[in-house]
Design a protein around this nucleic acid. Structure first.
Lengths: 338, 338
DNA sequence: ATGAAAGCGCTAACAT
DNA sequence: ATGTTAGCGCTTTCAT
């Protein structure tokens, strides 16, 4: 096992002090008026012996780790996976490291993870908060640690938030269905009462009310597929379905397949959350696409800006516009077949 | 900003030394014969004041971080995302933290990331190596740091590897197509010469040769969809296609849609790598499913076992069995329509 | 233009 | 049964 070399080893070899080595290696040679030739010799020697700074020691001393902790609901979810990937790249460009972990939307898991990040002295936090994490987020803020919430936030808690226009997205999707002649539009949503979900529900409800149509809402959770089957059998008048998450859309498509119902002839379908595969389904699935790229850029940008400028984050909510990607599953249909 | 409390603060309050606090908080009270009542008082006080150990300091002292660094090709890829999620959970249960990052299969990016992990003093490494990372992996091994390679490995480098049975999977998939009556089976693979890809190619080639059929191979990269369209137009005799990655399968399905070809009537399709959506495509896509769960468990299990027992990893390659999930896209077809 | 030394928070060998 | 203290590798103030 190769021996680790510290600045002391280099200092000894070069017959200088560890301080000099530290200055040189941190680019403060000029500022400290260390001769260019000495500096160059130190740098050359350091790379020759494969010196690698011990960030642990550096962090202990400076209190900074250039590390950001990120909590998502599930890293295997395409939305979060993509967002993580984008933020990771930007963070790296700006000299930070992003570490992410999945909470499964469980406050206890999230608390544990936050403890880990705090112990690791993460400089900043990006959180898609599960319900019940308000106190911990406040604690972070009180301790002066910058935190950006995204995808959802905690109503009543002043914080820096970045979310998609969930209300507008659902409203737009519902209007689209109405304009294509559907009148009995059901909403399939999760039983979560988190803000991103209630906003989607509100967007749907408002469009439905404006059109004088009856709201038909299914709240489901674990057994989504079966619940949707029951919902469809109970409400044979349904001619369209809006799903509030990509996950529910998949369960819905399974339910439709099970009942041998075709979209849009038998029932139209719109998904909240797009997926690259949707254009290949038959029919291709109409979807509300969240601006993942913009969300990711905004989140990591606001956080690192705050870190770099040492300025507290603005306690404001950025609401980013979504777009409706119209495909076949919501097409106007001549005769209803159900 | 709340003041951080250290064991010294607690020691002062309790009128004991920092060592005593350290022992108690690390569960060594009994071993050090510290009275149970004192221990209890210290523990209670610590939680009252919200003491949080500074892992940075602890790590600097012990040289251990209970941290594992993981390099995948792309965290947004379902295979890697799922694997990461599973390993993360197991690591957490065993008291480790898994930090992952994406290399984009670029050796330079991977080197940078490895540097970061080394500076952060990660205790162990999990790597899906890009081409050209051999020297760095060797350096890790020489420094006594445990590393497990997965999904692929570096031929010629003795290391601890965990991979799927790529050869067997491709062989099985090709045999399945042959048995269903397809004789002009094309392979669509990436232009990578990494071992997981060449193994898949070999599996295909062997089955094809045994059946006395002509090999028809397309190696593609960036412009996969267009390449596949050209390939199909150049070889109108093709009656089946085996894709060596999930990503290529998607490009292939797009190409088929573009040419208005239907599977399996016009051309049968089998994908290497399964995806939850595949059963909902029309037709449902036959796929070789990698044992992600088992791969993940094996990788993290071997690594943590080595860490905990302080025993070097066995330099052996675990090859885990894949399964062929037969769906409609490869079904035997009465008359060929092309 | 460079060096000495304190100290970040913690652990563990050694003392008592 | 509990305390003292050195030191992990680094940065930075203060000296020279």
């Amino acid at each position: 096992m190769k021996k680790k070399i510290s600045i002391y080893d280099i200092a000894r070899e070069m017959n200088v002090s560890s301080a000099t080595v530290s200055y040189v290696l941190n680019g403060k040679a000029a500022q400290k008026r260390i001769s260019a030739s000495l500096a160059q010799r130190i740098i050359t020697h350091a790379r020759e012996v494969g010196y690698r700074p011990n960030m642990i020691a550096k962090s202990l001393r400076t209190g900074k780790t250039r590390t950001i902790g990120m909590l998502v609901e599930d890293i295997a979810d395409p939305f979060f996976g993509t967002a993580a990937r984008i933020m990771e790249g930007i963070a790296r460009q700006r000299g930070y490291h992003l570490f992410y972990a999945s909470t499964a939307n469980d406050a206890e898991v999230a608390k544990g993870l936050l403890d880990v990040f705090r112990s690791a002295q993460a400089d900043g936090y990006i959180i898609a908060p599960p319900p019940g994490l308000v106190a911990e987020i406040q604690a972070l803020q009180e301790d002066g640690l910058p935190v950006v919430l995204f995808d959802r936030y905690c109503p009543g808690l002043p914080s820096a938030n970045v979310v998609a226009d969930n209300f507008g997205g659902a409203y737009k999707a519902t209007r689209h269905l109405l304009q294509n002649g559907f009148r009995r539009i059901g909403l399939v949503t999760s039983d979560s009462s988190q803000v991103q979900m209630t906003d989607r529900l509100r967007g749907y409800a408002q469009a439905i009310e404006e059109a004088d149509c009856p709201p038909l809402i299914l709240q489901t959770s674990a057994a989504a597929k079966q619940d949707i089957i029951d919902f469809l059998e109970r409400h044979t008048e349904l001619d369209a379905l809006l799903f509030t998450t990509g996950y529910l859309t998949m369960s819905g498509l399974e339910a439709l397949a099970h009942l041998q119902l075709r979209a849009p002839e038998d029932i139209a379908v719109v998904s909240f959350d797009d997926h690259p595969h949707f254009s290949l389904f038959s029919p291709a699935v109409t979807a509300v696409a969240q601006p993942v790229q913009t969300i990711a850029e905004t989140v990591i940008g606001r956080l690192i800006d705050s870190l770099e400028s040492n300025t507290p984050l603005a306690l404001q909510t950025d609401i980013l516009p979504i777009s409706l990607i119209i495909r076949d599953s919501s097409a106007r249909v001549a005769v209803q077949h159900r």
